[in-house]
């Protein structure tokens, strides 16, 4: 019975979900891991991307525009959302920023729920059109998976380039010591704002793909517990570790899958998932706070490699 799940369709579903969550987790890592800004409302940007695109593209509940417009619109609105939340909250430090972003996530959910004339509120928006690319509709899971993989790779390459640029290095410096970064002339607020906007934009793109893949969204999709899962991916993988955040997303998607094979009812699976993630978070904090792939092991590796090279030439 359970083996039905392991068909090609199921594997493609996992690939698509992993792609979407990798975008979320890698973008969130830019904020939490590299810049040291705890963001507990990342789902807000994910939701803005999803709702914007759906409202732009839906033939019945929206404007019926092409998917490419939805994608660009979703990314742009999420970025703008990042900018507007950044103006007041980047004046705040540490824990306060976390609270402010948490509030932002909840406000967005309230907007999705209460602006009923636009979003249909708790009813949600069903029958979201499939994504199209260059006029070709991604009706099959295969084609959708291909496009999501490409989109994820593009996002990862962009993030990689940003992190490994002088700008990315300054973000790390800000995480390490804000005052010292200021003493080197860095306009810390501007750097944080830029990181926030990039992060929000990529989360928005992930939200667009999510909506057009799942084909139904409602406010409960974008609740605080989803933000917690996002943070969970970053912490599990390793804050400030590029491949860590990718691994974190993969593990978080795959780990609860066996629950389905065990034949639990969907409601129970949902609850069990939450418990599982909470357990992961606590275990990681106690056992390996630096995550599965810690930033340090990467640097140490570099060092030992160099030492090996040195002794090799000596």
């Amino acid at each position: 019975m359970a083996w039905n799940f392991l068909g090609a369709d199921y594997l493609l579903h996992l690939i698509i979900m992993i792609g979407i969550y990798v975008m979320v987790s890698a973008s969130l890592n830019l904020m939490i891991g590299y810049t040291g800004m705890l963001n507990l409302g990342h789902v807000g940007f994910f939701g803005i991307g999803a709702y914007t695109s759906v409202l732009l593209t839906h033939p019945v509940y929206g404007l019926g525009l092409p998917f490419s417009v939805g994608l660009l619109g979703g990314a742009a609105m999420a970025l703008l959302g990042g900018y507007f939340i950044g103006i007041p909250s980047l004046k705040l430090r540490g824990d306060y920023l976390a609270i402010a972003t948490l509030g932002f996530g909840e406000i967005m959910r309230a907007v999705f729920k209460n602006w009923q004339s636009l979003t249909r509120g708790p009813l949600g928006i069903p029958a979201i059109p499939k994504a199209t690319i260059f006029g070709y509709t991604l009706a099959t899971k295969e084609s959708m998976a291909m496009v999501v993989i490409v989109a994820t790779l593009i996002c990862l390459i962009v993030l990689w380039k940003i992190i490994h640029s002088p700008f990315g290095r300054t973000l790390k410096a800000i995480r390490e010591d804000e005052i010292a970064a200021i003493s080197l002339g860095k306009e810390v607020r501007r750097y944080k704002m830029t990181a926030l906007c990039i992060s929000a934009c990529i989360a928005g793109i992930a939200g667009v793909f999510y909506a057009h893949y799942i084909s139904f969204i409602d406010p409960t999709t974008f609740s605080f517990s989803e933000s917690v899962i996002f943070v969970c991916m970053v912490i599990l993988g390793g804050m400030g570790s590029f491949w860590g955040s990718v691994l974190g997303a993969i593990v978080i998607i795959l780990l609860p899958q066996p629950l389905r094979f065990l034949g639990f009812h969907a409601d129970i699976v949902g609850a069990l998932r939450q418990i599982l993630f909470a357990a992961i978070l606590i275990t990681m904090m106690l056992w390996k706070p630096q995550g599965l792939i810690s930033e340090e092991t990467i640097t140490e590796e570099k060092e030992t490699k160099e030492k090996a090279a040195e002794s090799g030439t000596a």
């Binding site: 640029s165 290095r169 300054t170 410096a173 010591d177 003493s183 080197l184 640097t299």
Partner: peptide, 25 residues
């Protein structure tokens, strides 16, 4: 006040001028 979890070279490079727009690379 140094950047503890960055290398010594990185500490130095942060202080020096380079193109610092995010998409420079």
């Amino acid at each position: 006040k140094i950047f503890q979890n960055m290398t010594i070279l990185e500490n130095m490079l942060v202080a020096m001028k380079n193109n610092e727009v995010p998409w420079a690379t």
